[in-house]
Computed example of a mutant assay.
Amino acid sequence: MTDTLLNHRAEGPASAPPLLLGPSLGTSYALWDKVAPELSGAHRVVRWDLPGHGGSAAGLIGPGATVGDLAGLVLALADALGIERFGYAGVSLGGAVGLQLAVDHPDRVSSLAVICSSAHFDGAKPWEERAALVRREGLSGLAQSADARWFTPGFTVPELVRDHREADPEAYAACCDALAAFDVRGRLGEIRVPTLLVAGREDTATPPGHLRQIADAVPGAALVEIPGASHLAPAQCPEAVLTALRTHFDGAARRGTEVRREVLGDPHVDRAQARQTPFTARFQDFISRYAWGEIWTDPTLTRRERSMITLTALVAHGHYDELAMHVRAARRNGLTPEEIGAVLLQTAVYCGVPAANSAFATAQRVLAEEDEEAP
């Protein structure tokens, strides 16, 4: 690695859409260890280290550095890798770099995700004081309190604390200078790329209000709040962050969510998302990405035809709770009660009379409920 470029790690097919991942102050690209490999299935993922952090040379920035300087280093890395336009996601200072890129170089950023970050980090004074402290005493004291700033009580990632302790003090202080000077609140309305804000509900460093401020100012921006997450959400709640990023950056997942809402209705999808936990996040992403984003969007069959096939399959396997949901979906896809009855009658021949009997009972209940709900 040359001293003129940021240290980085590239993963995923070289031909895939590029996605750059930026770190938080005091960490290395190891912050993304539980997320980047999963994203690399559909993206050319490039995660990078701040100057003086991980494997990046400390001399890449100096006193009085700005977030614009860091954005320039990211662009130089992208240029060296032959990447013209890219998606970008960053945490804290890395998120600020993403905002700077979006306002100053909109032609380079295709889509943006800002995680546990801010458009203005509470003014210059705290960062000027931290820079002075680090230049005077080094990083050992700050490293000891890293867990309290980064995570909820009882959680830690030793590798990241080690990275904090081993960062170059002068480069760390220069990054503090950049945070002290950063303020793009007046320029957020200029951002025109698809933008996602991800907040940790337990984040005391950049509370959710910081992300809401950005979401309110950036046209069309979306906001996701992750329960239980503090400042380094990709390390503490990787599955939830992964789901949010996949939905934002992956066309199949986005289209899948749209189709899922069109077929099943907003109330059902809203309930499913409200019940989502870190344990179920990957399964929900799987459903949106593959079932709805690839199968239900295939134009070979109409949605009416897909509904008839789905009803038959659910009867065959006795999934009557799912059958009730898809009877409603079939009505949304244009099937009449008579056509639904004809499908279920067909299942009596090929799936068995007892299965069809239960299916008719389920469908009759759902259709009666719809009649009661109709104005």
Rank of each mutant, 00 (worst) to 15 (best):
residue 344 L to W: 03
residue 60 L to H: 10
residue 183 D to S: 08
residue 223 L to C: 09
residue 106 P to S: 03
residue 44 R to D: 08
residue 277 T to G: 11
residue 265 G to C: 03
residue 248 H to V: 10
residue 320 Y to T: 13
residue 138 G to H: 07
residue 22 G to H: 06
residue 122 D to I: 05
residue 7 N to V: 00
residue 102 A to I: 00
residue 312 T to K: 05
residue 25 L to V: 07
residue 253 A to P: 14
residue 32 W to K: 07
residue 42 A to D: 15
residue 13 P to H: 04
residue 313 A to C: 11
residue 266 D to H: 07
residue 47 R to K: 13
residue 186 G to I: 11
residue 355 A to G: 02
residue 100 Q to F: 06
residue 6 L to Y: 06
residue 198 V to C: 08
residue 362 T to K: 01
residue 272 A to V: 14
residue 356 A to R: 07
residue 165 R to V: 06
residue 71 A to C: 07
residue 54 G to Y: 01
residue 318 G to L: 01
residue 364 Q to R: 15
residue 130 R to H: 00
residue 368 A to V: 10
residue 206 T to M: 08
residue 300 T to W: 11
residue 228 G to S: 05
residue 253 A to W: 13
residue 347 T to H: 00
residue 315 V to F: 00
residue 170 E to T: 01
residue 71 A to S: 11
residue 164 H to E: 15
residue 241 V to W: 04
residue 360 F to G: 10
residue 314 L to G: 00
residue 285 D to M: 13
residue 328 R to W: 08
residue 43 H to C: 11
residue 225 E to W: 09
residue 300 T to N: 13
residue 305 E to V: 13
residue 191 I to N: 04
residue 87 G to S: 12
residue 69 D to W: 12
residue 87 G to K: 06
residue 137 E to G: 07
residue 29 Y to M: 14
residue 24 S to V: 02
residue 37 P to W: 13
residue 175 C to G: 03
residue 192 R to Q: 10
residue 156 T to F: 00
residue 131 A to P: 01
residue 263 V to S: 00
residue 157 V to E: 12
residue 299 P to H: 11
residue 308 M to D: 12
residue 128 E to H: 08
residue 350 Y to M: 09
residue 146 A to R: 14
residue 287 I to A: 15
residue 235 A to D: 07
residue 362 T to W: 02
residue 212 R to A: 13
residue 259 V to P: 01
residue 270 D to P: 12
residue 295 I to S: 14
residue 137 E to V: 12
residue 239 E to Q: 14
residue 232 L to P: 05
residue 372 E to K: 15
residue 192 R to K: 10
residue 40 S to W: 03
residue 70 L to F: 07
residue 97 V to K: 03
residue 172 Y to M: 04
residue 280 T to Y: 09
residue 57 A to H: 11
residue 201 R to A: 11
residue 48 W to K: 09
residue 282 R to L: 11
residue 221 A to Y: 02
residue 2 T to G: 15
residue 36 A to I: 10
residue 194 P to F: 00
residue 283 F to W: 14
residue 76 A to N: 08
residue 350 Y to P: 03
residue 152 T to K: 06
residue 281 A to R: 04
residue 195 T to V: 01
residue 5 L to P: 03
residue 205 A to V: 11
residue 65 A to Y: 07
residue 339 E to V: 09
residue 201 R to N: 08
residue 93 L to M: 10
residue 233 A to W: 03
residue 321 D to G: 13
residue 346 Q to S: 06
residue 356 A to H: 09
residue 322 E to R: 07
residue 267 P to I: 05
residue 6 L to F: 06
residue 348 A to P: 04
residue 75 L to I: 14
residue 82 G to N: 08
residue 86 F to V: 00
residue 37 P to K: 15
residue 340 I to W: 05
residue 228 G to M: 06
residue 166 E to W: 12
residue 40 S to R: 08
residue 333 N to W: 01
residue 246 R to T: 12
residue 255 R to G: 09
residue 11 E to M: 14
residue 43 H to Y: 15
residue 220 G to Q: 05
residue 287 I to G: 12
residue 293 G to V: 00
residue 365 R to G: 10
residue 293 G to T: 02
residue 96 A to D: 04
residue 113 A to P: 00
residue 250 D to N: 14
residue 46 V to D: 04
residue 211 L to H: 04
residue 116 C to Q: 06
residue 254 R to L: 10
residue 111 S to M: 15
residue 373 E to I: 02
residue 108 R to N: 02
residue 243 T to H: 13
residue 369 E to Y: 04
residue 232 L to Q: 01
residue 170 E to Y: 01
residue 137 E to S: 13
residue 231 H to S: 09
